[in-house]
Computed example of a mutant assay.
Amino acid sequence: MTINKLDNLLEVMKELRDPINGCEWDKSQTFDSILPYTIEEAYEVADAIDKKDFEALKEELGDLLLQVVFHSQMASEIDEFNINDVINSVVNKLKHRHPHIYSQNKVENSEQQETSWEKIKAKEREEKSIREGKDISVLDNIPNNFPSMMRSEKLQQRAATIGFDWDDINPVLEKVLEELGELKHELTSTNNEDRILDEAGDLIFACINLLRHLNINSETALRAANFKFEKRFRILERFLSSSKDQNSIPPQELNALWEKAKKVTG
């Protein structure tokens, strides 16, 4: 992007927020009110990447960039920061986290680079906690509003940095089975909703940990499972299209059609 193009976007955003001549909707927005749009645009970028739709990706990245400009414009109106501060912040961060490029510190391979990156980020978190007068924790600065699966993975990764982890996959798998057993126990004995919720959460957390040990991103895995289910279910619906009353089809027949749909999709 050239400077002129970015300036054009900044100018349009400024005009839309103009107190006198601006757009009523844009003028009425706050950081909180456009937050859902910011999250939505990030997910739409991810969707375009999943579909390898580069025309859509171009458009969605533009929408996401608009969110950055929108937030920056609102911040500049209250003298907090502006778009230049945002850009300078990320430039400084990138240089600080790549000392093997911007200083004399060298790394031999990508593994060493990742280790160096994590050490630098840990040091940054520690310095931030000290500035804010907070107790230092390896779990600092994992946003509470992250998607829950992503946050679980981040918590586990951070805990592992101080050795709170298993060395091999077997006890991780056993933990999944243990949590499944505890959930089954609550379902068959107490039937207490709070306890069932608690054990269901523990089971999901353990499954995410298993995937982490397998170097599989849990969000990616679930997204793929969702896509597979949707694809198979749409085929099942086509099989049912000739049925007069789809709601009265016996479960056994639905299961048979589901197995047929699975064979079609592979």
Rank of each mutant, 00 (worst) to 15 (best):
T115S: 12
L211T: 04
I83V: 07
T220C: 08
L210F: 09
R17G: 01
F54W: 11
I39V: 13
N170H: 10
N192R: 05
Q246F: 10
T115H: 14
L254H: 00
A200I: 02
S148V: 13
R125V: 04
E80P: 06
N105T: 14
S148D: 10
E44H: 00
I142E: 09
D165P: 05
D245F: 03
L211Q: 02
H96T: 10
I3D: 13
E132R: 15
E108P: 07
L214T: 00
A56E: 11
D198G: 01
P99H: 00
K93W: 07
I49C: 09
A42I: 13
E24N: 14
D50A: 11
E41K: 09
E193A: 08
L6F: 01
D85P: 03
R17V: 05
L65Y: 08
V264M: 03
A122R: 09
S110T: 09
Y102K: 06
W166C: 15
L183Q: 07
E178T: 01
K106S: 12
S72Q: 03
L240R: 03
I249M: 01
S110R: 10
V45T: 04
Q112A: 10
N84K: 13
M13V: 02
S218Y: 08
Q113P: 00
N226F: 10
K134N: 04
I20L: 07
E179L: 00
G201Q: 05
D63Q: 06
S241T: 08
E11C: 03
D47P: 01
L257C: 01
N21P: 00
D165F: 04
A46C: 09
I208A: 01
N145I: 09
L173Y: 11
G181Q: 05
L16T: 06
N145D: 15
S137P: 05
E55W: 02
M150I: 12
N255M: 14
N144L: 14
E126C: 06
G266Q: 08
R131Q: 14
E124K: 10
K184H: 02
I130F: 00
K95S: 07
N226I: 11
R223F: 06
L203Y: 05
L10Q: 11
N141H: 11
